[in-house]
């Protein structure tokens, strides 16, 4: 492994039982959710059986929980990466080595994401339940896992930037949670208001509202929730959020699905954010 930080972080985290317990608890939680879902669906069925189409919804539900887990876990795995080095008084030593500031922050990000990937991979047997009912393919699971990883990189790069800015890990975590809370819910809320506005305008003119590509992308290019529902929508055949909104036309015509825009925008911004984080810890940066 070329980046020694990744090796060291993996070595120390795997040595502790904490990660093992977290993985076990998380997998058990997902199994419980799946069990309760199946029980509920079967109980509500008039034939007392299980409709295989419901497996799609279970898949969407489990994936949604995975997304929520990523949103909550990534800051805790990465927001202390640089501030932790500062607290341990090892950052200066690291900066005098041949590692560049970028390789330090990159190593921290990969190490944090690596732990998350382990947890996500550990949940794959839960998804195996869905194979029993059919409808969900391996590629669906791989693509949603990759999307979750991109989201993790996106959140992780911000967490690391804040970890470089703030001395205390708790503050970095808090700022990341607030930022992503706003990024997901405030942009969605803003877009809903926009939709309501253009629909009312269109109704007065008796025409069909046509949402702007610019506004849509401005609101959702960096919204991990939007990309997630777009991908899930493609996989299960219906976007649960768009159906729920109830507007005749909730999104503009786009050349590519929202999740593709999302992946490209988030990866690009993540790289920029990591470069900024590296600059923050570079002791020889020019002001």
């Amino acid at each position: 492994m070329r980046n020694p930080i990744i090796k060291r972080e993996m070595q120390t985290s795997l040595r502790s039982w904490k990660l093992f317990y977290v993985v076990c608890a998380y997998v058990a939680f997902l199994l419980l959710v799946a069990y309760l879902f199946l029980e509920t669906v079967i109980a509500q069925s008039i034939y007392g059986g299980f409709n295989p189409e419901d497996a799609m919804y279970l898949y969407a539900l489990l994936s949604g929980i995975q997304l929520a887990f990523v949103l909550l876990a990534v800051p805790s795995l990465t927001a202390g990466s640089i501030s932790g080095e500062r607290e341990r008084q090892t950052l200066d030593i690291l900066l005098t080595t041949k590692m560049t500031p970028f390789s330090i922050v990159f190593g921290k990000l990969v190490a944090g994401i690596g732990q998350l990937l382990m947890m996500i991979v550990a949940t794959l047997p839960v998804y195996a339940l869905l194979y029993y009912f059919g409808g969900i393919g391996l590629w669906n699971i791989i693509s949603i896992t990759l999307y979750l990883m991109v989201t993790a990189v996106f959140i992780g790069s911000f967490s690391i930037l804040f970890s470089c800015i703030y001395k205390r890990t708790m503050i970095s975590m808090l700022v990341v949670y607030v930022l992503f809370g706003l990024l997901i819910f405030a942009t969605a809320g803003g877009y809903l208001i926009y939709l309501a506005y253009i629909n009312s305008e269109a109704a007065m003119q008796n025409i069909m509202a046509e949402p702007s590509v610019l506004v849509y992308c401005g609101c959702f290019a960096f919204n991990p929730g939007a990309g997630f529902f777009s991908l899930i929508g493609e996989q299960i055949g219906t976007n649960p959020i768009l159906s729920w909104m109830g507007f005749s036309k909730a999104m503009p015509m786009l050349p590519v699905p929202t999740w593709v825009i999302n992946v490209a925008a988030e990866l690009l911004l993540s790289f920029g954010i990591l470069a900024l984080a590296a600059r923050k810890i570079n002791p020889l940066k020019r002001k």
């Binding site: 020694p4 090796k7 060291r8 070595q11 120390t12 008084q89 090892t90 200066d92 030593i93």
Partner: peptide, 21 residues
């Protein structure tokens, strides 16, 4: 001051810094 990492043995600590060079 000297910074140390939890859960790291002496030889691993040295190996880590050998890696950084």
């Amino acid at each position: 001051f000297f910074g140390v990492y939890d859960n790291l043995k002496v030889k691993e600590y040295m190996d880590f810094f050998a890696g950084t060079y």
